[in-house]
């Protein structure tokens, strides 16, 4: 059971969780992008390793997509956007690191507590993978909730999506067609988000969500 294959898969999936923690307290945009690129790279490795041990060849395609799009194209595109928006020097106020870490740890514990009892029948590898994937997903959501910057929201969303792909790869893979369509939808989301970011910037001179909220009319009665 505790073969090398299992250990490597465990290591890679666990690495994604650790990288999600890293994402949580990056207060510079470039650093956030770099960690996200690393996150996607580890995802590509994890999925590739799953493809190898499951002998599921279509997972190689998934890994390739993760590598090319998520680890290279999207971070580069976001980097360009950041440079053109001129926000690469801004510091984002991140709430207390300790608090975020504690919350993240609690979420990971929650993910494991939920997933392990539910998947009693499945094999150990899939169970661990699913627990880690849920943890990554929850940490991505936590990132989105914590941040003000629109770029950080995008990163949070993408890391959440990485968690989904990890779950799908661990659970004996989802059909390739689904994977490709998800990858494309993420790309399209990137384009739409990019366009919107510029539009928002034109309008409000900022991509800070709090600044935008202050522009909203108070429609509450």
């Amino acid at each position: 059971m505790h073969s090398l294959e299992f250990d490597i898969a465990h290591f890679l999936a666990g690495g994604m969780v650790v990288l999600s923690f890293l994402l949580l307290y990056q207060d510079r945009v470039y650093a956030l992008l770099n960690v996200f690129a690393l996150h996607s790279l580890v995802l590509a490795l994890a999925v590739g390793w799953q493809a190898y041990i499951q002998e599921a060849h279509h997972l190689y395609v998934t890994a390739g997509i993760a590598l090319v799009f998520k680890a290279i194209v999207i971070p580069m595109a976001l980097r360009r956007i950041v440079r053109r928006l001129g926000i690469h020097r801004t510091l984002e106020v991140v709430g207390g690191v300790g608090r975020d870490m504690l919350a993240g740890a609690a979420l990971v514990a929650l993910a494991i507590m939920v997933m392990l009892p539910v998947t009693v029948g499945a094999d150990a590898l899939a169970r661990e993978d699913l627990a880690f994937a849920l943890a990554v997903l929850l940490l991505g959501l936590l990132l989105m909730v914590n941040r003000h910057n629109a770029i950080s929201l995008v990163i949070g969303f993408m890391s959440l999506e990485n968690g989904l792909v990890l779950a799908a790869a661990g659970a004996r893979g989802m059909p390739l067609a689904v994977e490709i369509s998800v990858a494309f939808s993420v790309l399209i989301a990137l384009i739409v988000i990019g366009v919107f970011l510029f539009r928002i910037r034109e309008r409000f001179d900022s991509v800070d969500m709090q600044a935008m909220d202050s522009f909203r009319e108070s429609r509450l009665k």
């Binding site: 909730v145 003000h148 909203r216």
Partner: peptide, 11 residues
């Protein structure tokens, strides 16, 4: 609500 509030609600 603001977008962060919605996200927090979902979360």
């Amino acid at each position: 609500l603001t977008i962060r509030r919605y996200l927090s609600l979902v979360f």
